[in-house]
């Protein structure tokens, strides 16, 4: 079963993955069961309209604050809040564990004493990271499709997939950042800390952008902006935004082997 670095890495992640799946199931069931009582309640939207702008930036998804509609509700609750937290957390956990985690535990020495090149080791771990994030997103998607139709949210499976693709790429941006920092330094806490900070900054930049004009251009460095502003739950996939998110992940992923190849492994 453990016949490659790829398989071994996935196997290691499986334990926590089960719990993430279970949590996802619980959350989506909860969200689904609450929605029918909000459906069509315009008074709720009025309430949100009265929120300070700074707050609205955090709860909206793609500028849409209509939480009495299915798309608005999922956008606010799942895609701009809980979904990114979970998927980014999983991606950063996997990214920091890949090289830095194994290096700090001291098992990387023996692994790289085997006839496996550093680049190959890295690429297999990177593939495992992508698989884990995609798999959890797939579980989320299936549950959302079920809940959306059961609770009458009226968001199509295709648009959910479009939003989920954006979310996967958004999470991978930070997962790859953690991966690259871990590969460059071998320090897990550093990888987690920096990439989590980057994710928070991305969210805050995007949320506060409407408050100040100088922030409006600053949001263009925020992956959260490219993830959310096209409102994929309503309009489906946004080509350019998707490509930008993908490009960030690819560049960071491609940087990792380069940084990893040239350095000394730390002594366990």
């Amino acid at each position: 079963m453990l016949s490659s670095v790829f398989a071994k890495t996935l196997y290691d992640r499986l334990r926590s993955f089960r719990w993430w799946c279970l949590g996802t199931l619980a959350f989506i069931a909860l969200y689904g069961s609450v929605f029918p009582s909000l459906h069509g309640k315009q008074s709720l939207n009025k309430l949100i309209e009265g929120y300070p702008q700074a707050l609205k930036g955090f709860v909206g998804f793609g500028g849409n604050l209509d939480i009495a509609s299915g798309a608005g509700y999922l956008g606010t609750e799942v895609f701009s809040f809980w979904g990114p937290i979970v998927l980014v957390a999983v991606a950063i956990a996997a990214g920091s564990a890949a090289i830095a985690g194994e290096e700090e535990r001291g098992t990387l020495d023996l692994l790289l004493s085997l006839p496996v090149s550093r680049t190959r080791c890295l690429l297999e771990k990177l593939a495992a990271l992508v698989c884990e994030v995609v798999a959890l997103a797939f579980v989320m998607w299936i549950l959302l499709v079920i809940v959306s139709s059961a609770a009458g949210m009226g968001v199509s499976a295709v648009n959910l997939a479009a939003a989920m693709l954006g979310l996967v790429l958004f999470a991978l941006d930070f997962g790859m950042l953690a991966f690259a920092i871990g590969a460059a330094t071998g320090r897990k806490a550093l990888a987690i800390g920096l990439s989590a900070t980057a994710a928070v900054i991305a969210d805050v930049l995007n949320a506060l952008a409407p408050l100040a004009s100088w922030l409006d251009s600053a949001r263009l460095v925020s992956p959260f902006y490219f993830y959310s502003h096209g409102d994929p739950l309503r309009h489906g996939i946004a080509g350019t935004d998707t490509l930008i998110l993908l490009a960030i992940a690819v560049v960071l992923g491609a940087l990792a082997p380069h940084l990893f190849r040239r350095r000394d492994l730390s002594t366990p």
């Binding site: 535990r105 001291g106 098992t107 020495d109 023996l110 004493s113 366990p268």
Partner: peptide, 8 residues
Amino acid sequence: YLPGDLHL
């Protein structure tokens, strides 16, 4: 290779 400080 057998490392001096073995981590498995």
